[in-house]
């Protein structure tokens, strides 16, 4: 066990994957000498060279389009999109090509491309640096979409994403990059990256979150305990595929549920969860599935982001509201 910050844990995971498989490449803007603006690729170019760690021209469509070509040639590119808001120039390559090509080839072609995206707000950034674009990608079949929430998952999930033969959108909660925890870098007995996890057991209500909001929900659960409420927290980890079995088991047991994400509530990922839970757990629900998220507005200027982002109080408010039913 070693103590690592999330950014460093992902860095170690990338390093391990590159050591294990010479076909693994890292590519993106400023990923070489600089080590990425968040230093997630720090030191990789020095150790693996410029052929495997590629500072690309400043063009996201180019990054993903060429990653597809490299994958067709047998490589496993890990692309970094510098910030969430800059994935959109690559949207065409991701949605029309990357997601659909394997199926069009009747399974003959595999595109093991990983797209790492630092996501979410809370770092006081200017616009386009705090977005939560996951729903655009979960809405696109052919892509796996995962989100890590802590260093141990960062380390193991990035390696599993790289080994996966499907394209994977890999969300990294940027405001948690500097938070540290124990990581087992020796063992390879990984919790599957497409499975959800109960990160805090409880009996009265299930909070479902992923990425940056897992920590917020854990804090809310601790606070709720003081009010005598036992709140369970589920870290989804994988948004597509969704670990329905675990989610439904939890909600059937507690009878109450709130979904928490930073992305706008309207047409957000929480809407899918709420609908599915209602369909599956209808007779066991004591209250409607509630959603806590960003407002249905553009991400606001940073001085307002604390109002926009779900926080402890907003999550507890949802817990309270659930108990009024």
């Amino acid at each position: 066990m070693t103590t690592l910050a999330l950014a460093k844990a992902i860095n170690e995971g990338l390093r391990k994957a590159m050591e294990d498989d010479p076909k693994v490449l890292v590519m993106g803007e400023d990923v070489g000498k600089l080590g990425g603006v968040f230093r997630v690729t720090d030191g990789l170019q020095k150790d693996f060279g410029e052929l495997r760690v590629i500072d690309t021209p400043l063009a996201e469509s180019g990054i993903i389009g060429t990653a597809i070509g490299l994958a067709l040639r047998g490589y496993r590119p890990v692309c970094e999109i510098q910030f969430d808001g800059f994935v959109f120039p690559a949207a065409d390559q991701i949605i029309t090509q990357l997601a659909k090509m394997p199926m069009r080839s009747l399974g003959e072609l595999k595109l093991p491309v990983v797209i790492r995206i630092p996501c979410g707000g809370g770092i006081g950034a200017v616009e386009h640096h705090s977005e939560s674009p996951e729903a655009y990608f979960t809405h696109t079949s052919g892509l796996r979409v995962v989100a890590c929430s802590n260093p141990a998952d960062g380390y193991s999930m990035i390696q599993q994403a790289i080994r996966c033969d499907d394209p994977v959108i890999f969300f990294e909660p940027k405001r948690r990059y500097w938070e540290k925890a124990e990581v087992d870098t020796a063992g390879a007995d990984w919790y599957p990256f497409d499975a959800a996890k109960i990160v805090r057991p409880g009996t009265d209500l299930t909070l479902i979150a992923y990425g940056p909001m897992v920590k917020t929900c854990l804090e809310a659960a601790t606070a709720a305990e003081e009010d005598g409420r036992s709140v369970e927290v589920v870290d989804l980890r994988s948004l597509n595929p969704l670990d329905s079995a675990l989610v439904m088991e939890s909600v059937k047991r507690t009878g109450r549920c709130a979904v928490v994400h930073e992305a706008p509530v309207f047409s957000g990922y929480g809407a899918e969860l709420a609908a599915r839970i209602t369909e599956t757990c209808f007779y066991r629900l004591e209250a409607p599935v509630l959603r806590v998220g960003g407002f249905s507005t553009p991400y606001p200027p940073s001085r307002l982001e604390d109002h926009y982002l779900p926080d402890l109080d907003r999550v507890l408010d949802a817990v309270d509201r659930s108990f009024t039913f």
Binding site: E29, V37, T56, L58
Partner: peptide
Amino acid sequence: WAISEPLEKQ
């Protein structure tokens, strides 16, 4: 320069 990338990367 484009952040850390010199012109020859473009």
